[in-house]
């Protein structure tokens, strides 16, 4: 027991948790952005992440492109893919009962998963582009994790600032609050929804590109992530972008400590235990749900 209360071990767990949490935060905030703007839960969100991961894998194995450079290709590509999916599929189920959009995006996730299996088989892949560790005194940061966390934070904060500060970003928030009133301000809500889905896709694609350096992944790997994302957006507050950022970091840290103190099996269940705990204390999540409408 003394060993576990060693400040160095605690610090190491905290660092590991923050690094993992940053990636969760990036992934979940995209999902929450889409939910906030169009009240659609995109079950295929983790598959968008895997599109990014496999994109990075192909670029690395075929052209030797480092994932950090692959971001410049993958992120715009997944943005465009998200834009297209909104136009071709999701736009048809906006405003429909939740079950309709759940089924539509569930269908999309199955299609994407099977295309993934056709092209890449179900074997696990990885992109070992970055190795080694950064050492700060007693603490060790594996380089790929540190870089992934940094990139995640940059992306998430970038999108946050876009939403808070820019004309288009504010329009996204306006549409999420009152689409009809936003329309009558001259905002083309369909374009805003395509932009939103594209952005969420880009965020998932960036998360996937970073993930490819850290974990091994297969087309079926989405399920784990989407479940955690569901827990995170409820923990943070449904539809609340910043809430998902806090929720993601919180889950990363708590998972790390649970894994460190108990076992990795318990770490798997952490998301749900945390979810129940947060909802008992604050039924609308940490930052409050955006469900005024």
């Amino acid at each position: 027991m003394e060993e576990i209360l060693d400040p160095i071990i605690l610090g190491q767990l905290l660092i590991g948790g923050l690094l993992a949490g940053a990636l969760y935060a990036l992934l979940a905030s995209g999902l929450n952005l889409v939910f906030g703007v169009m009240r659609v839960i995109n079950i295929a969100h983790a598959e968008f992440m895997l599109v990014g991961a496999f994109g990075a894998y192909v670029l690395y194995t075929a052209f030797g492109l480092h994932p950090l450079l692959a971001l410049f290709i993958v992120v715009p590509a997944v943005f465009g893919f998200g834009w297209f999916v909104q136009h071709a599929l999701v736009e048809r189920v906006v405003g429909q009962p939740m079950l309709t959009s759940l089924l539509a995006t569930y269908g999309l996730s199955i299609v994407l998963l099977n295309i993934g299996v056709l092209i890449f088989t179900s074997d696990f892949k990885g992109v070992p582009a970055l190795t080694g560790s950064l050492v700060f005194g007693e603490f060790v940061l594996p380089k790929p994790r540190a870089v992934a966390a940094l990139v995640s934070i940059v992306f998430a904060v970038g999108v946050y600032l876009f939403l808070e500060r820019t004309r288009l970003g504010k329009a996204v928030r306006a549409v999420s609050e009152h689409p009809h009133v936003a329309t009558i301000c001259g905002i083309d809500t369909k374009r805003i929804r395509m932009l939103t889905f594209g952005l969420a896709g880009a965020m998932a694609g960036a998360a996937g590109t970073m993930l490819s350096m850290i974990y091994s992944f297969a087309p079926e790997s989405g399920a784990d992530f989407i479940q955690k994302c569901f827990a995170i957006i409820v923990i943070g507050g449904m539809g609340n972008f910043a809430g998902a950022l806090y929720g993601g970091i919180l889950l990363g840290v708590v998972e790390a400590f649970v894994g460190g103190f108990l076992s990795t099996q318990w770490a798997e269940a952490t998301a749900y235990l945390l979810l129940v705990l947060v909802l008992l204390i604050r039924p609308t999540g940490l930052k409050g749900a955006a469900l005024a409408r």
Partner: peptide, 15 residues
Amino acid sequence: FARMTVEDNLEMGAF
């Protein structure tokens, strides 16, 4: 737009 500032609300009117 309740979750936006007064200024941002007006800005949306001038989108």
